[in-house]
């Protein structure tokens, strides 16, 4: 681990939202790490990898990318979307695959998630990081998929 700040990109386009506003205590209370959420724009699109690294966990609705210096970022597409059992999600990758920041990982449609009765918000979590290590984009600002979402120092 170095002192350099690494850039974590937004996996989706949308509105930057405080993690505390995510309707799931695992995320809103930062139980697995701090981060920030993105309220995605409607329309079918690809969620992209937030960093360069290796996909250590891949579900249809969520994935973890581990960078080469051990940091890992969790992207969760919507809340309780595990119950959709992959329906409406199209995986472009497999577990263990190397990805680049900005590379498409999962195709999905936030509007379809909402219609199915789930919140499509996307928490992006710096696993096991310290809150102070993150510098996030301003809540309420708009980001595109692949734009810088936060920096992570340490």
């Amino acid at each position: 681990m170095t002192g350099a700040a690494r850039v974590v990109c937004s996996p989706v386009g949308g509105t930057v939202t405080a993690l505390a506003d995510v309707p799931d205590p695992v995320f809103s209370q930062a139980m697995v790490g701090p981060g920030i959420a993105v309220e995605p724009r409607d329309g079918h699109g690809d969620a992209v990898s937030p960093i360069d690294g290796t996909l250590t966990t891949v579900h249809a609705h969520a994935f973890v990318v581990a960078g080469d210096d051990g940091e890992a970022v969790l992207v969760h597409l919507g809340i309780d979307t595990v119950k959709q059992q992959g329906e409406g999600f199209t995986l472009h990758v497999v577990k263990g695959e190397r990805v680049r920041a900005g590379q498409p990982v999962v195709g999905w449609d936030p509007a379809a998630v909402r219609e199915a009765g789930y919140a499509p918000i996307v928490p992006v979590i710096a696993l096991d990081a310290q809150q102070e290590a993150l510098r996030a984009a301003d809540t309420g600002s708009e980001v595109g998929a692949g734009d810088e979402l936060f920096t992570w120092t340490g």
Partner: peptide, 20 residues
């Protein structure tokens, strides 16, 4: 466990990224 959420007979145990 980092946290435990109970809702009747359904319990979620937050264990971190090794959950799977």
């Amino acid at each position: 466990a980092h946290g435990v959420m109970k809702s009747g007979a359904v319990v979620q145990v937050v264990v971190g990224p090794e959950a799977d």
